[in-house]
């Protein structure tokens, strides 16, 4: 692992509040993302997981500046790009790219595949040696598509193939980091594996860093070096993949992991059931946001917000006053029904 000083992407206190307006008056805000801190090193994959509504897609959009952060900083390759203007962003755009979730909406139905993949080159006025067409065909080949198909239209391809086209487009400018926003969630399970394998090969061959946003922990395990778990706009646990999967410290992480269906295990799997709904991001609970659904919540959890710090001296950070410290599958205290 590289040291922290070589971070490619450095996020501190990233926040996004969406103001709720009644007419012209602001009546509060949806606190979608509330102070994120994380790093991504070159060639590393960081998985960003959580339930729907936890703010991970918003985070992804902010990283590529499709949304403006309300506060906080984003540093890329040592430069602060949080509020950079379009002109300054231009060179950065080449290094930071995004892959979208919906293979049907992410490609312009009126453009040929070749034009879609070539779009980043044309927009930035780049003419690669050998011509744009050659580069497009190279990219198509790279993602496992027939390069002769560059004159076809998206409606002639399957979902999996379209996602590959989206990946090819993201690779056009030789980026250093790709934000993958749930790239396989809309695909069949059988295809998901193919695409993930492709991403992994690309990462290895091109030394790409990824911020991999997903809600499916099984997929994340397959692909990511490090994992950050988000709940209601905050990161509750972050660490190496093995640490997170084998020794999850935050109760929420434990609950998520226990929910992964495991076809190899027989008999009841000791599933932790979380009762109640996710609270509203308009008015999150005080203190620890997870306390309303946590079976081990105490008074302290309501009054004092736990910081994201190492809890057992290791590299794993967890935001919990009473973290779990046993291996997965072992529950240190009896699950208790928690009222909302």
């Amino acid at each position: 692992m590289s040291t922290e000083t070589e971070s490619l992407l450095r996020v501190r206190g990233l926040t996004k509040h969406f103001p709720v307006r009644e007419g012209f008056r602001a009546r509060g805000a949806v606190r979608a993302v509330d102070g994120l801190d994380f790093d991504v090193r070159p060639g590393e994959t960081l998985g960003l997981v959580g339930e729907s509504g936890c703010g991970k897609t918003t985070t992804g959009r902010m990283l590529v500046r499709l949304l403006e952060p309300t506060s906080g900083t984003i540093e890329f390759a040592g430069r602060d790009i949080t509020h950079a203007r379009r002109g300054a962003l231009r060179p950065l755009r080449q290094d930071l790219q995004i892959i979208f979730q919906d293979p049907y909406a992410s490609l312009n139905p009126r453009h040929t595949v070749g034009r879609i993949v070539a779009m980043p080159l044309q927009v930035n006025g780049i003419n690669p040696p050998g011509g744009i067409r050659k580069r497009v065909q190279e990219l198509l080949e790279l993602v496992g598509l027939n390069p002769e198909h560059y004159n076809r239209y998206p409606h002639e391809f399957s979902g999996g193939q379209r996602q590959r086209i989206g990946i090819a487009r993201a690779l056009a400018l030789r980026p250093k980091l790709i934000v993958a926003d749930e790239p396989v969630s809309a695909l069949d399970v059988s295809i998901q594996a193919q695409v993930i394998n492709l991403l992994r090969d690309l990462q290895r061959d091109l030394d790409l860093a990824f911020v991999f946003i997903a809600h499916d922990l099984a997929v994340v395990r397959h692909f990511c070096h490090r994992v950050a778990v988000m709940y209601l706009g905050k990161i509750v646990e972050i660490g190496d993949r093995d640490d997170i999967y084998q020794r999850p410290q935050h109760p929420y992480t434990r609950a998520l992991l226990s929910a992964i269906p495991d076809v190899t295990a027989l008999g009841p799997a000791g599933r932790i059931r979380l009762t109640g709904d996710v609270p509203t991001p308009l008015n999150p609970p005080s203190g620890c946001r997870f306390r309303t659904r946590c079976w081990k919540a105490q008074e302290r959890c309501a009054t004092e917000e736990p910081a994201l710090v190492p809890r057992d001296g290791g590299a794993q950070l967890a935001a919990c006053h009473y973290p779990e410290n046993g291996p997965i599958g072992v529950v240190t205290s009896e699950p208790v029904e928690v009222s909302q």
Binding site: R61, V64, R65, L66, R86, L89, R90, R93, Q94, Q97, I98, F100, Q101, D102, A105, S106, L107, N108, I116, M119, P120, V123, N124, G166, R169, L173
Partner: peptide, 14 residues
């Protein structure tokens, strides 16, 4: 709001 438009913007399109 469609993602191909966002993709263009993310690539730096004016």
């Amino acid at each position: 709001e469609r993602e191909f438009v966002e993709a263009a913007r993310a690539s730096g399109a004016g």
